[in-house]
Computed example of a mutant assay.
Amino acid sequence: MKIVYFTHSLASCWNHGNAHFLRGIASELVHRCHRVDVYEPRGAWSLANLLDDHGRNGLEPWRRAYPELSSRTHDRDFDIEAALADADLVLVHEWNEPGLVARVGRHRRDGGRYRLLFHDTHHRAVSDPDAMRAHDLSGYDGVLAFGATLAAVYRRWGWGDRVFVWHEAADTRRFQPPRIEGQREGVVFIGNWGDDERSAELETFLLGPAQDAGLDLDIYGVRYPQAALDTLARYGARYRGWMPNASVPDVFAQHMATVHVPRRYYAEALPGIPTIRVFEALACGIPLVSAPWDDTENLFRPGTDYLLARSREEAAAHLRRLAAEPESRHALAEAGLETIRSRHTCAHRVDELLAILDRLDGAPAARLGTDPLTDDIRPAVSGTEIPA
C-alpha cells in the first residue's frame, strides 16, 4: 500500500509526544514493505523550538534511530494532487491546521480513491471542543481515537461506528530493556511541565515521594518555567532539560524506577488513556509507579505491571520498597514487559489498522495498492526537506 500521513512533525519530538508512536508505526509499515509518505508543515512549532534550542544537531538522534524514515515539509498551497496520487490510505493527525484538514477531506470527497482517517491523540476534544469541532471532517471515512473515552466523544458528535479505538503503543524495535544490566540509581521522570495541568500532582506523586524516600531524582522535559524550576530545586531534583525521544531507553536503563503523572484531563475527563509514557517505561523494563489513573479498558494489570499510588505517602512507600527489594523490581519489570510484548507494540497497532481498513472496505487490506516495495528497507520519502 501507499500510506500518506500528515503530521505536526516526524522530525521533532520537542513537546510532541505523538512522535514516538508515529515513528514506530511508520517504521513498522516500511518494514512490511509498504510505502509511507510523511508530510509536516514548514515551520512547525515543535521543529522550530528544537532547532532554536539545540540547532541541527538536535535532529541527529532520531535520524540515527530511524534511518528508514524521512518527511517532506509543505506550505499551504502545496500540490495536494501530487501528494495523494495513488494513495491507498491517508491519515491526518489532529494537530494540523483546519485548512489542511478540510482540504484533504475535499480531495477525498471529490473522488480520491483512498481511505481517509482523522487521527486524534490529544485531550482537546474535551478541553477545547469548539476548536476540534471546527475541523471539517465531512469528507473523512472515519476517526482513529487513542482511547475509548475519546471515541465516545466522537460518537456523541455523530460518528457512530465510524470511530475506532486505536491506542498508542511502544516501538519495541528501539524501546527495549538493556541487553546488559548495569548500575541503576535513583528515580527518573520524563515529561513536560506544560500549562500547569499537573503542577500539584507532580509535587504530590513525584517530587515529594522521591524526597521522602531519600532517592535522587532526574527530570527531563521542556516548558519548565522559572517557578517550576524553583520548585524542582526546592525538592532537590536535578533538571536535565530536553532529551531526544530516541535516547529514552538509555536513560531508563540508568535508573531504578520511573513515575507516571498523567495530566489532569486524562485522569479526570478522559480516563483509560495512559499516554505514551506508560508504554515506553514498560517496554524498557523499568519499574513504574503511577499517580492515580483509572485503567477503564484493562490495558494493563495494576499492581502487577506497575504500582499505583493514591497519595504522597503511598508513592514514597512504593519507591522505598523498590529501592530495597531487587526481586520486586525484577518481577514488576518482567510483568510490564510481558504485557507490552503481548498486546501493545506498534506491530500490534499496524495489525489493528489493517483490520480497520478491512472493516471499511469489506475486503482484505492487503489487496489494496498497486505500488509494492521490495524487501529492502529504504527511506519512506526521498529528498527530505527537513534541515540537514
Rank of each mutant, 00 (worst) to 15 (best):
E280S: 05
A269Q: 15
V261Y: 15
R264N: 15
A269I: 02
C284D: 12
I286K: 09
R277L: 04
P274T: 05
F279I: 04
G285Q: 07
Y265R: 12
S290A: 14
E280P: 04
P292G: 11
V278D: 01
V278L: 08
T275L: 05
S290L: 12
R264W: 11
L270A: 06
P292K: 03
T275H: 04
R277A: 14
F279E: 03
Y265L: 00
F279S: 10
P271V: 12
P287A: 09
V278C: 01
V289I: 15
Y266L: 15
L282K: 10
P262N: 08
L282M: 15
G285C: 10
P287V: 13
P271D: 08
L270H: 11
I286A: 11
R263V: 12
P274M: 01
P274N: 06
E280F: 00
P287K: 12
A283D: 06
I276N: 02
A267Q: 14
V278Y: 02
L288E: 02
Y265K: 05
G272V: 03
G272C: 02
P271T: 03
F279R: 06
C284N: 13
I286R: 10
P271W: 08
L282H: 07
P292V: 11
E268S: 09
G272K: 07
A267H: 02
A281Q: 06
P262F: 14
V289L: 11
L282T: 01
P274Q: 01
S290F: 08
I286N: 07
S290E: 07
P274F: 09
A267M: 02
T275Y: 03
L288Y: 08
R277V: 04
P292Y: 12
P274A: 09
A291L: 03
E268D: 15
G285R: 03
A283S: 15
P287M: 11
I276T: 07
C284K: 13
I273K: 08
E280A: 12
C284W: 10
A291S: 12
L270C: 10
L270D: 02
V289D: 13
E280M: 00
V261G: 10
A283P: 06
A283N: 13
R264P: 12
P274W: 07
P274I: 06
V278S: 05
R277Q: 11
P292M: 04
P271R: 10
P287I: 04
P271E: 08
E268H: 07
P274Y: 06
E268G: 00
I286W: 10
A269H: 08
E280K: 02
E280V: 00
C284H: 10
S290I: 12
I286T: 10
F279G: 00
A283Y: 11
S290W: 02
R263F: 06
R263L: 11
P274C: 04
E268T: 08
A267I: 03
Y266V: 11
R277K: 15
G272P: 05
V289P: 10
V261C: 09
S290K: 05
T275K: 14
T275S: 15
I286M: 09
G272E: 00
P262G: 04
I273H: 00
P287W: 13
A267G: 05
I276V: 15
F279A: 04
P292W: 02
A281D: 07
T275Q: 13
L282W: 06
L282A: 08
L282C: 06
F279N: 05
I276P: 00
A281Y: 04
T275I: 03
R264K: 15
P287Q: 11
P287R: 12
V261F: 06
L270N: 04
P271H: 02
L288V: 05
T275C: 12
